Computed example of a mutant assay.
Amino acid sequence: MKNPMDRQLEKRLSDRAVAIGRDGETAAFGELLAMLRSSSANVRRLAASALGKLAWLGVDKHAAVTALGPIARCDPHTQTRQYAIKALKAYGTAASCYLADLRDMATNPAEKDYIRRDAAAAATFIDEALRIAAASSIHYCQRCHSVLTADEFARSQQAFQRPYCDRCFDEVFLQRRNFEVKVELNKTIATQDGTVVQSQGERRIADWLTTRGITYRYDAKFRIIGEFQIRPDFYLPEVDVYIEYWGLSTPQYKMSMYKKQTLYQQEGKRLISVYPADLPRLDAQLRTKLQLFGYTIDDLLP
């Protein structure tokens, strides 16, 4: 139980956060960032709310979004997460790095209704802000560097999240389609729950998850990390953890693996890497690695 001094401090900080937001006190921006690290959920909640109110007043948007993002994703207090999500919405295009997370929250059945609702609203707002910003800019094809029309830019962004002219778009689309076909043809191994995977290693992981009642998505297409599109082997939506099985050892495969691992790290995603040598002790490996992220098997059960 908190002592009276703790309660007094919490009230003072809470009142201060409300006042900063109400008065638009941009000079106190740093105070709010510090309050987001408070042990009090109420202080964090009100600080997030105040940061949202300062979004239009010239504060450091990158710093605000960097501080708000982790709160929105995984603060233990759901109402604090809700206020952080609303604040991210206010930062518009500056919060685009959290679009994938917001979309996940909006569609995750494990989330509270109000989290899903506000995450969907934030994602829609940020998408529209990006669209408006893009419409007023000159864009060049990533491959041939020709100037894009508005339609070319919109089409390529919707499909690939990269700018391509129509000619390059068609070439990239064909390459992607061939890759998709190859991946689907490689899926020949059935798991316990009927999912068809590409390797025995992936089957072992899928069966481990199924046996323990852990919800997962396999090979989810076009999952966005930053500006890149990837297809994680497994995604655990309840805890926002990715599992990749690195089953080959060719030089080309290793280069792709290192690039993908770097993307996960740069975006702050929680990744569990599994290698063929891990399979004989898969249960211990997955339990240990999940515990490193603060989860036990009981946490993941529905």
Rank of each mutant, 00 (worst) to 15 (best):
I205P: 05
L209K: 02
D127K: 03
A122N: 08
A150P: 08
Y218L: 05
I115M: 00
D118N: 08
C141L: 09
P163Y: 03
I132L: 15
A106R: 03
R223M: 09
I205A: 03
L185K: 14
C141M: 09
I138T: 13
R176W: 00
T211Y: 11
L209R: 01
T195E: 09
K221V: 01
V172G: 00
E180W: 00
R103Y: 00
T215S: 06
N108D: 13
F179R: 11
L174R: 13
Y140Q: 14
F173M: 11
D170K: 14
E184N: 14
R177C: 03
V181G: 06
V197W: 05
Q161S: 13
Q161R: 15
D170G: 06
T124L: 09
A220L: 07
I126G: 05
L174S: 07
S156C: 10
D207Q: 09
H145V: 08
R177S: 12
R167N: 10
R204D: 12
G194Y: 02
D101I: 14
T191I: 09
A159Q: 06
V181F: 03
E128K: 12
Q142F: 14
Q161N: 15
S136R: 07
A206D: 04
E184I: 08
R177G: 01
L185C: 07
R176E: 13
E152P: 09
T211G: 12
R176G: 00
Q192M: 11
I214G: 05
L102T: 01
D166K: 14
Y114M: 03
T188V: 15
Q142P: 01
T191A: 15
A120Q: 09
S156N: 04
P109G: 02
E152W: 04
K182F: 04
D104A: 13
R223Q: 12
A134Y: 04
D166S: 15
R212E: 06
R204L: 14
Y218M: 04
I189N: 15
T149V: 10
R176L: 07
R203H: 02
R167K: 03
Y218C: 02
Q161M: 13
D127N: 10
G201F: 04
T188C: 08
G213F: 10
G194A: 13
D207L: 08
D219V: 00
L185S: 11
A106L: 05
